[in-house]
Amino acid sequence: MTDPAADAVSRRPNRLLGVLKGIALIRESTVGMIGMGLVGFWVVMAILAPVLAPYDQLAQFASATYAKPLTAAPDGGTFWLGADPLGRDILSRILYGAQRVMIYAPLATLCAYAVGIAMGLAAGYKRGWIDDVLSRISDIILSFPILVLYVVIIFRFGASGVNIVLAVTFASGPGIMRIVRGLVLDLRNRDYVAAAQTRGESAWYIMFVEILPNARGPLIVDACLRLGYTIITIGVLGFLGLGLPPPHADWGGMINEARGMALYAPHMTLFPCIAICSLVLGFNLLADGLREISLKD
């Protein structure tokens, strides 16, 4: 018999390799590859926004309002995608907008997952009254039409980045809880859980070390879909004027600001639309690809 501690140490690099292999598996799915490409593209754009953007996102050129794409800017540069009603460069605003959405959407989804997983584990593993209470609470929150809930929350607490994160956590935590709970109910009767219980491990250890890692497959797929959905939500709130406050670039907000003039200068709304659609599509395709692969084995 080998020493279990030494075994655990030697296993660690393999685990990292396993994760990398898992990511490499996406190559088996064309759809997944396209999705990963789209998401990767926007991640790179968000990171490199300060380098790539030709102008500051707030720089205004009073003489260049509604400038068409590919026209010369007053300072000798080019508005590749045109300028908005305040004469701000749309390309720069889309790039900085990518940065913003790439911060808030994952952050909000992560918070929702932290809450949802904690609730789901507690409900599924502990059962009893905890399960009853948590399930009822989530039933109540889930019975709201989602956007009605967002409008009410944002109305009450005001539009800001933090409040959007909180609103998404509040509204989608229960959905995640249901999924986690279902997975836990299935996993809690496995032999390895029984073994851990016999060893005298604490409930915390069993929930987070034995059960949660084994529930990761469906959760990763769900997280991709949910990220896409959160991006839509942030976009919708921005579009309704309830989202991240101006003047910093926000894709939904850009569409809203240019909406009135959309018919005369369509480029102002068209490019942010393409940006948001391609990013959401990327996450949806990635989720599809991951599901396809997980069904294979």
């Binding site: 896409g228 976009g235 569409i255 959309a262 018919l263 068209l270 959401v280 599509l281």
Partner: peptide
């Protein structure tokens, strides 16, 4: 998948562009 990836406000803008403008 593609149509569900286009949020309502985006498709509203796109369709209005095509059919109205």
């Amino acid at each position: 998948v593609i149509t569900t990836s286009v949020p309502e406000f985006a498709s509203a803008v796109l369709l209005a562009f095509i059919f109205v403008f």
